[in-house]
């Protein structure tokens, strides 16, 4: 019994140490970072965070990221809801093939789509807009949303649908008034996943933007290559990118395990 907790704690330490080291570094001055290895900041400073939160070039990146991530999450969940209902309730011509085709999009490497996306969005004048990144991210988020939601919907007994129809509910009214509240947890978990996968994606977001919609993740890589020295600010920017994830995980903490299992246990 003791031995198994020992292993677990060892792993948790392994999991937390790198994050701790970044947080630690974000609170130090650059002299202290490059000077000596210290386990906690000797001269506690919030200057690194102040730099980011007062410079529009930095905090603009966070705003851009949040805008396209939110557009993407809302659109993905909105189109996935009716589709996953169809997959969980009906058989129709080519349903299995369609589902597989959707899944392949979750599994296609973004690098394959890099160049065509660039040309497609340039040709319809969407290059460097938030909506372009949001649409591009739907490529992998919509299939994922359908997959997760279908798992949750399959857990709701059909009798509920049938009773509602007998009671004279039309489909849209039944769907919005009765069905959506029933799978509230599933929608929350799905939104969480769409948010996360869009938030962490770099390759497409970087390629489809230049100035106006440049995401924070792209701004960070630029700092690495250009300045290369400002470790404190880099660490602080990293810490700030974890904040949304940490907030979201707090809200869905009771559903984490089930959510990661795509509602399929």
């Amino acid at each position: 019994m003791k031995k198994r907790y020992f292993g677990l704690i060892l792993y948790l330490v392994f999991a937390i140490l790198p994050i701790y080291w970044m947080v630690n570094m974000s609170l130090k001055t650059n002299e202290e970072i490059t000077g000596a290895l210290t386990l906690w900041p000797r001269h506690l400073t919030f200057d690194n965070f102040r730099t980011i939160l007062t410079d529009p070039a930095w905090y603009g990146g966070y705003i851009n990221s949040l805008i396209y991530v939110l557009i993407n999450t809302v659109l993905s969940v909105a189109v996935a809801l009716p589709a996953s209902y169809a997959f969980s309730r009906y058989e129709f011509l080519g349903d299995k093939h369609l589902f597989f085709w959707l899944l392949t999009n979750r599994m296609s490497p973004p690098a394959v789509f890099l160049l065509p996306f660039f040309q497609l969005y340039s040709s319809i004048n969407l290059f460097d807009t938030h909506i372009a990144v949001a649409l591009a991210h739907m490529l992998f988020n919509v299939p994922l949303a359908v997959w997760i939601l279908e798992g949750f919907m399959a857990g709701i007994p059909r009798e509920i649908d049938e009773t509602a129809y007998i009671d004279g509910y039309s489909f849209p009214r039944f769907f919005v008034r009765i069905f959506i509240p029933l799978i509230g947890a599933g929608i929350g978990v799905t939104a969480f996943f769409c948010f996360m996968f869009s938030w962490v994606e770099l390759l497409l977001a970087r390629t489809l933007t230049s100035v106006n919609a440049k995401p924070i993740v792209a701004i960070m890589t630029r700092t690495v290559s250009a300045a290369g020295m400002d470790w404190g600010v880099l660490a602080a920017a990293g810490v700030l990118t974890i904040v949304p994830g940490a907030l979201v995980i707090y809200f869905v903490r009771n559903y984490i395990a089930k959510g990661f299992a795509m509602g399929r246990v």
């Binding site: 948790l12 999991a15 937390i16 140490l17 790198p18 994050i19 080291w21 970044m22 570094m25 970072i33 490059t34 290895l37 996360m196 938030w199 962490v200 994606e201 770099l202 993740v217 960070m220 890589t221 690495v224 470790w231 880099l234 660490a235 990293g238 990118t241 974890i242 994830g245 940490a246 979201v248 995980i249 707090y250 903490r253 984490i256 395990a257």
Partner: peptide, 29 residues
């Protein structure tokens, strides 16, 4: 569970940054 899930929620490039810092001989733990 929350501690375990932490690394999953970090943007991919920040994962790279974390390990870049963490693994360096001069400033990484």
């Amino acid at each position: 569970l929350v501690l375990l899930a932490m690394p999953l929620l970090i943007p991919q490039n920040v994962v790279g940054t974390i390990w870049q810092i963490y693994g360096r001989g001069d400033i990484g733990l």
